[in-house]
Design a protein around this nucleic acid. Sequence first.
DNA 1: ACTAAAATGGACCGGCAGGTCCAGAAAAAG
DNA 2: CTTTTTCTGGACCTGCCGGTCCATTTTAGT
Lengths: 197, 197
Amino acid sequence: MLTTKGAATRQRIIDGAAAEIRNRGVAATTLEDVCRRTATSKGQLFHYFPDGKEQLLLAVADHEAERVLADQQPHLGALTSWSAWQDWRDVVVRRYRAQGVHCPLGVLITELGRSTPAARAVTGRLIEQWQGALRAGITGMQHTGRIAGELDADRTAAALVAAVQGGVAVLMSTGRSTHLEAALDTALLFLQGKHTN
Amino acid sequence: MLTTKGAATRQRIIDGAAAEIRNRGVAATTLEDVCRRTATSKGQLFHYFPDGKEQLLLAVADHEAERVLADQQPHLGALTSWSAWQDWRDVVVRRYRAQGVHCPLGVLITELGRSTPAARAVTGRLIEQWQGALRAGITGMQHTGRIAGELDADRTAAALVAAVQGGVAVLMSTGRSTHLEAALDTALLFLQGKHTN
DNA sequence: ACTAAAATGGACCGGCAGGTCCAGAAAAAG
DNA sequence: CTTTTTCTGGACCTGCCGGTCCATTTTAGT
């Protein structure tokens, strides 16, 4: 079992590892780095994550996935007006611009996804939830007549997720948020039924 | 200098490394793997890439960047009709669906981009060229009146690049091409001035 | 043919990072 | 208070992988 203290330590390790990875990347982060930052020892690390690095990384990925959605709230959960959509857009842009070159989740996935199906499950869930929230926003707007009813909500939500994802990808490799903004704005224009920018 | 044979070997190493990375990822690819696959030795590897792994990876990234654009030709260079755009879309989808979970360039960047500015330059150039080709296609269609003249060609091209990029990102972590298709199709609908799907 | 330069093969090294082990402290259980 | 479980610290091991070195072979140049 796990005592209160134990659970706290375990969490401290996850948080520390996440922070370390955010700053220096997965490849450059060693278990010893994590130990140093979290004031723990190898013994503890393997006590809480018997399967070693892979298990820890998976826990970090899970942790980061939650963060991604949490950071978009409360806007993502209440996309009931155009201004709410705009606020959401702004939050997304601001968040990723601040994060700059470091996308912990993306990096984790490219590193883990290939080997373990468990890692892919984490991303899968995240995308599904994300897309679901956007779809809910779209159908809500359709019910109040602000978005055309013929529009395929799920498909458009998927495109929106891809737009953000792609914008972030470009941001990660160029450091510029122009593409993220262009992608989001263009997608929102489409939602609004406009066709110029 | 470099003899014909030498140049061939050098190229063989790059090709082999690229293939190896496509199959198993950067992290899992060792110099010895590359040697084995290309039937070369450490001596040769460091003979042609004195700065070691980093230099090799950079060369691979460059190689892959060229491939990305080449694979989209001739369509990408002649986006002069809606059917040409559609063909381009199909090629992109087919290419990445075939590639599946493996995006060599993306992985290389997330691995190198952080450390070396040279790696970021490679992606930067690729994105710029890509976006340029799309922009040219858009302005061309504007001149023949098939796309509204008020539309911001550069910004929309940027959104298009992000759409592909994002779709591929999702494809990489889920294995499904639905998002890529949704993103591309939605973007094309926007270009056509339609607002439903 | 002779020489210089380039190409090749592979033995070897050194450090590092993931993982093991165990002994002792702290908590929980009774 | 005793016993059992959990937690903690860190010394240690080991395999791997990037990188070095040099002896040998091949090619280019004249």
